[in-house]
Design a protein around this nucleic acid. Sequence first.
DNA 1: TAATTACTATAAATTTTATTTATCATTTAT
DNA 2: ATAAATGATAAATAAAATTTATAGTAATTA
Lengths: 312, 312
Amino acid sequence: MTITQLKYVLAVAEHQNFTKAAQKTFVTQPTLSMQIQKLEDQLEVLIFDRSKKPIELTEIGKKIVNQAKNIVDEANRIQDIVDQQKGFIGGEFRLGIIPTVMPTLLPMFLKAFTNKYPKVHLKIEELNTDDIIQKMADGHLDAAIAATPLKLDFIKERALYYEPFVGYVPETHRLFPKKAIDVKDLNINDILLLEDGHCFRDGVINLCNASKGSYEDSFQLESGSFETLVKLSDEGLGMTLLPYMHTFDLQKEQKKNLHHFNEPTPAREVSIIYPKSELKIQIIDALYQVVSGIVRGAIAFQDVKIISPITK
Amino acid sequence: MTITQLKYVLAVAEHQNFTKAAQKTFVTQPTLSMQIQKLEDQLEVLIFDRSKKPIELTEIGKKIVNQAKNIVDEANRIQDIVDQQKGFIGGEFRLGIIPTVMPTLLPMFLKAFTNKYPKVHLKIEELNTDDIIQKMADGHLDAAIAATPLKLDFIKERALYYEPFVGYVPETHRLFPKKAIDVKDLNINDILLLEDGHCFRDGVINLCNASKGSYEDSFQLESGSFETLVKLSDEGLGMTLLPYMHTFDLQKEQKKNLHHFNEPTPAREVSIIYPKSELKIQIIDALYQVVSGIVRGAIAFQDVKIISPITK
DNA sequence: TAATTACTATAAATTTTATTTATCATTTAT
DNA sequence: ATAAATGATAAATAAAATTTATAGTAATTA
């Protein structure tokens, strides 16, 4: 049994397909066929049920895959241990960021981080929360920045900051006269929402105490960006809610439409999340320090009520 | 990095010598030199300090060795998982047994066990507790039968039985008239002890509330077997203490010299112990079942006070 | 239903890697 | 000072992984 064989098993298990797995592991398909057969011969057990299309893991194959993940993780950790001992912070680091955080947060910390840790090769991907979880489970992400709490048993969370929700209320809206708005004032049916898949959308739905879909009877406009939502709002199609940091780059004119919430302000918790295995924890620590340090200056502390980013 | 390389590192770390490690791993010495160098090159770190004689681990080398142990253990576990799923109980199983348990317990369970699990190839070694601990730490024992509690953080214990101490008191001894003896009656200075290294000796010392060596001022006879102790006792050189099961094969005449303790009877706890990693746990379970089942018939339950097998 | 597609397995050739044999260089012990 | 012990190195060999080419086998499509 070799670590390489175990990696091949993991690749085939993930893609349920020898050919695709071969491409991902940068070898040819016969390599996988032969090495996996060899392992199966040694263990005297079938890992894959090749009669099923697409290919499936056998019962015992599932257990082997779990254990193989352990082993590959623990093997990767050796380089980690060496790096840590040397005080070396570098290498490839795959970071996922949710779309509603990406445009505001990334410019704030990216330059500072790459300056401080020039040897880290960041591979940043914009992904929504579900994709982040999936990729992290498959070992394709070292960490991610997402709204929390997610309460997943294989993921650890470390809060970076709490970002208040801010109301964007156009002059024509019934709430415009109110200086500060209250959660009770909200009506899910006149709030413009991001399109499905964004956890911020789910957060707003939770905030309004609505269940997913309860508002769907009435016609709703939805979009993938806050920029569009604000424009639609300006057109009088309803109010919307923005994460605090998204209000920074509104035009002077538009800022007049911002209505803050009374305390405790509803807010989302934005965290750096990473697998419990804690691989590359040094880089995760470094990233945490840089980001939380930078954001500390941007968001004043206030009494905050965390809104869950998940709907059931 | 390969599992083989990690095994080579572990072997060299253990023997502090490339040549010996090569013999133990059944390869030639240059194989170890080259493979370990290759790993060191890949990790860009020295695992061994070759300037020291004998060779030593570097600081980082120690951490790598720990992690390598994990990985090799976890890799071995794969075969375990397969066996378990198949309900297969077999393969090599290395069992250590302490000398004061070996002659009485082994004949009781060996035949029953090998009959029930013919595919298990038992490799039994008589070892005292210290050697058991050492070998288990080095991964050379799958389990052992020893007096407990040992309170070691890398070892798990499962009690098999509680074996009372029995006094062997010759006619000439001051305690002979007493039918049942009491712990308070004992005097470490007129008890014949096993030689150093036996945990039963330490148990007796603990029982008498003596610190190791406090009795050494007076002349003591010591031996490596209870058989000898009994003979010396018969010669009038003092009383001795025997584990209950050792009294079975005394001669009729000698059995008259046995004096049981008042309850709570001092006793030793005999357990099957095994590394926390729980490799080959199926075989450990099987062994536990067989042994505890057999002993249950041999030792009647009584109120017992466990004597620690360890002296400080 | 024949042809095509999408797969995985197999065979043979090739490349890479691990291991051994033989030998050297250094250090330790006598 | 000499012998013994020990690890490194070089070259040769053995073993293994990988690739290329191709066959086999389902499922899918024309």
